[in-house]
Design a protein around this nucleic acid. Structure first.
Length: 583
RNA sequence: GCCCCGGUAGCUCAGUCGGAUAGAGCACCAGAUUCCUAAUCUGGGGGUCAGAGGUUCGAAUCCUCUCCGGGGCGCCA
């Protein structure tokens, strides 16, 4: 609806030559916003104040001349000047009626913009390492990423969702050795379990379930002889390393890789199932092994080399990240010839861009914030723009149980999983809560509170509004009454109660909220909006009966609540939350 | 030391490109149900927007400094 005001404002401005220069680089639409106080009308523009300085006139004088130049519109009822120079627009009821009609006719498309070809967006999240089940922190990345993806699609962008699987490198060896130690433990060979290995219960479950055909049996002496000390006496990394070497020696590379690969497959399968149940799906699971196995990294390094972005120092190969604003140069090939994680990351982002995606969005945990500058530096060094990559950081989730802060560490095994969270509070509440706060805000998740207060949970409040509408229509059917939709549309003029006016205003805001939330990658705007809209509905519900004897009024009211049902359902769908017919 | 995020009601948090009297939930107090689901609604109290300067018609919002809390700064992944 905002465009109604922006359009006539633009028109008026075009006719005021004394203001064209002052308004040259001003977006008129950006000066138009919803009013907070109904007394101020439906929309207000601060354009006169913005133009006051460049035009060297008083805001109120400018406002007066703009209003003078406004052409008549049957969608605008009244325009006036208020306060320091705001121009307030009161829209006509028919403007709102037309919006209600759009909601009914567009249905689940209402609030969505038509699909466009570009920019093509590659949204990467949550890319948790496949070394254990997803924990509650990953859940936040997943919910946020999925919702941002839905929002971007709603405003018309082509979105491609990708999960980057870190399935190459040392951590996979650590995973393999962790499972192997549990495996031989089942045969009675007790090895002091490494501090640096993965010790969660899921490791034992994998050990118990994998296929050990072709894996050599070993003796305790074979495993234990001449091992270095673990922490606290020794170095935990050296200890794990020695055990990996031992496993490779005793089992052969083939035997060890057999265990390693099965462990990876098991965990990755678990993550895929977990996310699918959570309503989070991907266009591609991008394996780091594909990257390291092919020539993608060589290609990226060659590009950097060609452009003179690499140099040797202390036997290692460095990337000149400082040339692009990073705080220090970064190693891409270590002295021992092994390429760093950063090398594959930079190759991956280069490759994403090469695949034809215009805008890369990474959703990362806040502990990765140092990564943004070096990844942008990498893109720039390879000929793209740093701004082609947008990094959204999501702050930590702190889990409480019984008021006690819980430790979350995959290696220590004391984490709580996304699965547990979903089982305890349900997918809907989890999806909703995860995105109800700004990604920049730490999220305190108290399981006891989430469970004990589940009836006061805003997600139920919103779902209840949806279910209530469905219930009204069931009542209608029980009373053997019909809803005449066309008749309702023709009698929308009967909806003159303040609650009806408020609800129509709320409904008409929906497309603007979706756009705002998408542009800012800020799902919480939608969350708060839906809560407010549900409130408007419940207030209306309590103030007036819908199924009244007057058929014209009844049809009009049913038209309004039908529109409410559509908007709530559309909003919840973007959040990945169900919209029940009954509760 | 440097970098990122946060500090708004008792608690948890919204607050759009700077805009009109700073909002919501929970908690607390007082009410509403012969009537479409009370998982609801109505009303009330509750604020030095961490602090200090600055920018301007106007600052919770932008800038500078300080304080407090969380996180990050590897030839790890």
């Amino acid at each position: 609806m905002k465009h109604i005001v922006a359009d006539i404002l633009n028109q008026a401005l075009a006719g005021l030559s004394e203001l064209t220069e002052a308004a040259a680089d001003l977006s008129v639409a950006a000066t138009v916003e919803r009013t907070r106080d109904p007394a101020h009308g439906d929309f207000a523009s601060n354009i006169a104040m913005r133009l006051a300085k460049p035009a060297r006139k008083s805001p109120r004088d400018i406002a007066a001349s703009i209003i003078e130049a406004l052409s008549d519109s049957d969608q605008v009822e009244k325009v006036d000047i208020a306060g320091p120079g705001f121009i307030n627009f009161h829209l006509s009821p028919s403007a709102f009626h037309a919006e209600m009609e759009s909601i009914l006719s567009e249905g689940e498309r209402y609030g969505r913009q038509s699909p466009q070809e570009s920019p093509k967006i590659l949204l990467e999240f949550p890319s948790a390492n496949p070394t254990g089940p997803l924990h509650v922190g990953h859940g936040r990345l997943a919910a946020y990423g999925a919702t941002v993806g839905n929002l971007l699609e709603a405003v018309g962008y082509p979105v491609y969702r990708e999960y980057y699987v870190n399935d190459a490198g040392r951590q996979m060896d650590i995973l393999g050795v962790s499972v192997w130690l549990r495996l031989i433990g089942m045969d009675g060979i007790e090895v002091p379990f490494p501090k640096g290995a993965y010790r969660g219960d899921y490791i034992r479950e994998i050990a118990a379930s994998i296929n050990t055909d072709g894996v050599d049996t070993v003796t305790a002496d074979d495993v234990l002889s001449d091992l270095p000390a673990d922490e606290p006496e020794g170095d935990k990394e050296a200890y794990v390393e020695a055990l990996i070497d031992r496993a490779r020696t005793l089992l052969g590379d083939g035997g060890f890789n057999h265990i390693r690969q099965q462990s990876l497959d098991s965990i990755r399968g678990d993550i895929e199932d977990d996310l699918a149940e959570f309503g989070v799906t991907f266009d591609r699971w991008y394996s780091e092994q594909d990257l390291t196995g092919g020539d993608a990294i060589d290609k990226a390094l060659a590009v950097l080399e060609e452009r003179g972005m690499l140099y040797k120092k202390d036997g290692a190969t460095w990337f000149r990240a400082t040339d692009f604003g990073d705080e220090k140069d970064r190693v891409v090939v270590r002295e021992n010839g092994v390429r760093t994680y950063f090398a594959s990351d930079i190759a991956y982002h280069f490759e994403k861009r090469e695949r034809g995606f215009d805008q890369l969005i990474d959703i990362l945990g806040a502990d990765h914030h140092g990564y943004a500058p070096r990844l942008k530096a990498g893109l720039e060094a390879m000929g793209y723009k740093g701004n082609d990559l947008e990094v959204k950081l999501v702050q930590f989730v702190t889990l409480y149980r019984g008021g006690e802060k819980m430790q979350m560490s995959t290696r220590s095994g004391e984490f709580d999983t996304l699965r547990q969270l979903r089982a305890e509070i349900g997918n809907d509440a989890a999806r909703f809560y995860y995105v109800s706060r700004s990604n920049d805000q730490h999220l305190d998740f108290d399981l006891d509170v989430a469970k004990s207060q589940s009836n006061d949970n805003p997600v139920y409040y919103i779902q209840y509004a949806h279910a209530r509408v469905a219930s009204v229509f069931r009542q209608l059917a029980e009373k053997a009454l019909q809803w005449d939709q066309a008749g309702g549309r023709d009698h929308l003029g009967l909806l003159v109660e303040p609650q009806e006016r408020a609800l129509m205003t709320g409904l008409s805001r929906y497309p603007e909220v979706v756009e705002l939330a998408a542009n800012n990658r800020a799902p919480q705007h939608l969350v708060h909006y839906l809560r407010d809209l549900a409130n408007d509905f419940h207030t209306y519900y309590n103030a007036h009966a819908f199924i009244v004897d007057d058929a014209a009024l009844r049809d009009a009211r049913l038209y309004l609540i039908s529109a409410t049902r559509t908007v709530i359902a559309n909003g919840l769908a973007i959040l990945g939350v169900s919209a029940p017919e009954q509760m």
